[in-house]
């Protein structure tokens, strides 16, 4: 009996070992790249945020503890910029998330039907997604150009029969952030629309038929079938849009450099400009670490919400 059974566990070990060896071989290239170019830089970033280094000098690197983190909230000058950037991100997210999500859902419902024209519209709404941010910024810089020669100014002038005073959209403290918001929505909506479209098509048509038989009106169909059917999709879209909103960088860097008077500065822009432009690497790193944790926290919360709703 003993001789019969004892070899078996050994054999099993050998087999699992072979399988795990193949598994490891498959894993290694991807995981090594991810660890080297994502995980290590992240820890390096944490390390940088705890040390000070004068770039280009040979003063030795020195540990400064949480100095850069304290700076964010106590340094008289810097605190203002950081909080302003945080606020800008907040406003950006508070406007973009609901508007873009709502618009995307609305457009998805509009294009969720057949026909050549509808198909054309679907393409149109999605097209900006493939536009690099550099290009989007360029186009909108021209549209938003100051003076009567600017496209938007000229258009508004015509619409108001000449009563409109041309604005310096990107140079005005009150108009710069809304301008950035508008062009971001133009670029991003198509992406979310397609996700909603997939969500719509995931709603079984029998649900609609059942509601129709119950005598539901168009509005009831939307409220009682479509909206509940899109619940998880909506949560997902909101989550993704929020995360994107907190990472805004390119358009700010290209169009306004955070100006005027920090009216468009974003946290990510601040981090990069501190590290790269102002050579204040530790400070920039501290900001990115804080932002990463904010995003991590938000997605954990949203994941939790998603899970609860599903159960």
């Amino acid at each position: 009996m003993v001789t019969l059974t004892s070899p078996v566990p050994q054999r099993r070990r050998r087999k699992i070992w072979t399988e795990s060896r193949v598994g490891l071989t498959m894993l290694i290239p991807g995981i090594v790249l991810i660890v080297v170019f994502m995980l290590i830089p992240f820890f390096y970033s944490v390390w940088l945020s705890l040390h000070v280094e004068i770039v280009g000098s040979n003063i030795p690197i020195r540990s400064v503890g949480l100095l850069f983190y304290r700076h964010l909230f106590t340094d008289p000058i810097f605190r203002g910029i950081f909080l302003k950037s945080l606020e800008n991100n907040g406003i950006f997210a508070l406007v973009v998330v609901p508007v873009q999500t709502g618009l995307a859902m609305f457009l998805a419902i509009l294009v969720n039907r057949n026909g050549a024209f509808v198909k054309f519209c679907r393409t149109t709404f999605f097209l900006p997604v493939v536009f690099p941010m550099v290009l989007t910024s360029l186009i909108w810089k021209a549209i938003l150009a100051p003076g009567p020669a600017g496209m938007l100014n000229a258009a508004l002038r015509v619409v108001t029969f000449g009563h409109f005073t041309p604005q310096y959209w990107l140079g005005n403290v009150h108009l710069a952030l809304p301008s950035i918001i508008v062009l971001s929505i133009w670029q991003g909506t198509g992406f979310q629309m397609v996700i909603f479209l997939a969500g719509l098509q995931g709603i079984p048509s029998s649900h609609y038929e059942a509601a129709l038989i119950d005598g539901a009106s168009r509005w009831h169909l939307f409220r009682d079938v479509t909206l509940p059917g899109l619940r998880n999709t909506t949560i997902f879209v909101v989550m993704v849009t929020t995360i994107f909103s907190l990472q805004v960088f390119d358009q700010v860097y290209l169009l306004t450099q955070g100006g005027p008077l920090n009216a468009t500065s974003s946290v990510m822009y601040l981090a990069v400009s501190q590290a790269y432009v102002a050579n204040n690497v530790g400070q920039g790193a501290a900001i990115s670490v804080v932002l990463s944790f904010i995003i991590l926290l938000l997605s954990l919360i949203q994941r939790q919400v998603l899970r609860e709703r599903v159960d």
């Binding site: 399988e19 598994g23 290590i40 830089p41 992240f42 907190l246 990115s288 991590l296 997605s299």
Partner: peptide
Amino acid sequence: MKFRGRKTLLLLIIVLVIIPFQAIAVP
């Protein structure tokens, strides 16, 4: 594949998904 640490690795991947590139650009 079955191997030890699979779950941990998966968790790591999920967390790394949300770290913005800009946050690690400088390092």
